[in-house]
Write a protein that binds this DNA or RNA. Structure first.
Length: 573
RNA sequence: GCGCCUGUAGCUUAAUGGAUAAAGUAACGGUCUUCGGAACCGUAGAUGGGGGUUCGAUUCCCUCCAGGCGCACCA
């Protein structure tokens, strides 16, 4: 599935106009059309936008001595056109790049845009009227909420906010495994020592269930009689046997209540909850129906999808006991989701360990409902690993999300004893989310405690600090409307460095949403904050209308951008 | 064994096939009679190996090496 983005919104953006200008020049000069790029050069001495048109064209033509000669011809033509109000100058550089420098007036205009649009700045309507469902976090009741869930939550929430930022109507979904062997294992463990729980907090009760799960999982592997007991429990759970209903319902509710406390701290609010018990029913029916139509096959008493015929794995959808497996449940889930929300796009955010699994499910979905298949996309992110290796809830070697947040918070309070409780929480969440989101989604996240709660350098707190610093300076004045009366201003180099960076925010938002890459927002904001702090160190802001305006605009972008990462910007810290 | 993913500075990460590979962190050295030092500036340090395509490769292709994940009734 590919996002269909309407780029009309950026038709007047400089890169689009430069592209038009070059195409016009090619036509006029009777040069052949050829693929070329217009991009921001890495080195800003090379201008604000740069094109490789001359290099691309040169390799196709023989009548020019070198690319620079060709570049000169195109440039000369472009310079005759006067109705482009944003280009200051065009230079030919290096092997034959065309470098475009933007006019200061245009840059200053963008500053005003940011202040005028305030919290709407950077948002657009590319996905207007599109419905998008994003499924993420997916913790399992009766087990811990570990830092992997924290990661999935940070990624999913950020993607949801990015989709909203480009105009989509988004529903956040959470899919939770309330039936299955892990529940049986946990309940088996709970039955052994239930009495301990009287008067304990929710956190402790959930922690206890985690331990119960570990005990059950170990016993399942090592003890034959325990294994039989657990399998019997699994059946009881599936059949809703009254004998264990109270324990089951109590434990389930503890988990769900507990998860809500974590979501609240993280700033996520789910619109839709789905459970495996529900998805299983749908899944079973679907698979049975399409078994008749030949999509699935019977083998060794089970119902399978023959993925091997398509270069995938063959997987079981209904096991030989007649119960739906995870595969069937995921098919049921797709349908259940669509019944509740007629989505145009459906994203499923999980760890990439199930990438191959998901390909099989999607291949089956394609046979059953091509329309839904078209709309569905699995987003596999890297896994969180400990330096010692993989986390395992079976051995109890897990770090819970709550532990991490509390540790981060404790460190902040220790380093800065004066911060308020509220701010410490905000900064702790900011540090963790930023650490998780600043890297691309592809690779595994090697969990480093030190890194994840870092307060210096490229960190969430650095951005929050910069925001608070901006706000603090602005509060020294009584000005409330920072609109700029100035249309020309001879900016110094630090000011210019900021001007030449911040107008890129709207295009960064679009790119991040389109490429499913929250890290692009993180990178952008970090660069912005760095430029501001360098400027701040060398110039006094209070007393200059221009600098105050600049500061206000930066604060606005920091706030907007942090929001897209799911991070709050504190007024003080 | 087969398939997928990942290898960039000691560590964590940037870089739509473009120009001198960019930061943070750790190390060392600096900045402040100033609006918030959770800041700023400087020094030193890298594309796993080998081929290929290209005017140009961290990026695409092949191969080797290293690591991770997956491969039938768990989720």
């Amino acid at each position: 599935m590919q996002f269909k983005i309407d780029r009309k919104i950026f038709a007047t953006w400089p890169d689009q106009q430069i592209r038009q200008l070059i195409n016009q020049a090619l036509k006029e000069l009777k040069l052949p059309a050829v693929d070329f790029i217009v991009e921001h050069p890495v080195d800003e001495n090379h201008g604000d936008y740069s094109s490789n048109i001359a290099l691309q064209l040169f390799s196709k033509l023989s009548k020019f001595k070198n690319p620079r000669e060709l570049a000169k011809k195109i440039t000369d033509y472009c310079l005759q056109i006067t109705d482009y109000d944003f280009v200051d100058k065009i230079e030919i550089a290096g092997p034959g790049f065309l470098n475009f420098h933007l006019k200061r007036e245009w840059l200053l205009k963008q500053l005003n845009q940011a202040l005028k649009q305030a919290d709407q700045y950077g948002r657009n309507q590319s996905l207007k009227a599109k419905k998008v469902m994003v499924e993420f976090t997916d913790p399992n009741p009766f087990k811990e909420f570990h830092i992997g869930h924290l990661y999935s939550n940070a990624v999913g929430e950020s993607l949801a906010r990015l989709f909203e930022a480009i105009g989509a109507q988004v529903k956040r979904a959470n899919y939770q495994g309330d039936v299955g062997m892990h529940v049986a294992k946990s309940i088996w463990g709970m039955k052994k020592k239930l009495k301990i729980l009287a008067g304990k907090s929710l956190t402790e009760r959930v922690k206890f269930m985690g331990q119960a799960y570990a005990a059950g999982a170990t016993a399942y592997q090592e003890d034959q009689s325990a294994k039989k007991e657990i399998e019997a429990l699994n059946k009881q759970i599936y059949e809703q046997d009254p004998a264990i209903q109270e324990l089951y319902q109590t434990g389930r509710q503890w988990s769900l209540d507990y998860f809500e406390t974590i979501y609240k701290r993280l700033g996520t609010k789910f619109d839709e909850y789905f459970f495996e018990s529900e998805a299983g029913e749908y899944g079973l029916k679907i698979v049975q129906e399409y078994l008749k139509k030949g999509v699935f096959a019977k083998s060794k008493g089970a119902v399978i999808f023959e993925g091997e015929k398509r270069g995938l794995h063959t997987r079981v959808f209904i096991n030989s006991l007649g119960l739906p497996t995870y595969e069937a449940k995921d098919l049921g889930l797709a349908v259940a989701k669509y019944q509740r929300f007629k989505y145009d796009y459906s994203f499923n955010v999980t760890g990439n360990e199930i990438n191959a699994y998901f390909q099989v499910v999607l291949a089956a979905l394609k046979q059953i409902n091509p329309e839904l298949w078209q709309k569905t996309r699995h987003v596999g992110h890297g896994m969180v690993r400990l330096p010692e290796g993989k986390m395992s809830s079976r051995t109890g070697k897990v770090l819970t999300g709550e532990w991490l947040i509390d540790e981060a918070k404790a460190k902040i309070k220790k380093t800065y004893p004066d911060v308020s409780e509220k701010t410490a929480e905000m900064v702790a969440i900011g540090a963790i989310k930023y650490a998780l989101l600043k890297a691309g989604l592809g690779r595994d996240v090697i969990f480093s405690f030190k890194e994840s709660i870092s307060l210096q350098g490229n960190s969430g707190p650095y951005l929050q600090y910069t925001y608070a610093r901006c706000r603090s300076v602005l509060q020294k004045t009584k000005i409330t409307d920072y609109r700029l009366p100035i249309t020309d201003y001879s900016a110094n180099s630090e000011e210019l460095a900021i001007l030449r960076w911040f107008y890129r925010y709207p295009e960064t938002v679009l790119a991040a949403a389109q490429e499913l890459a929250p890290n692009q927002i993180a990178n952008y904001l970090y660069e912005l904050a760095q430029r501001f702090n360098t400027f701040y160190n060398n110039h006094r802001i209070v007393g200059s209308d221009f600098r105050l305006t600049l500061t206000a605009a930066i604060a606005q972008i920091l706030e907007n951008g942090l929001y897209l990462l799911g991070i709050k910007a504190p007024e003080k810290m």
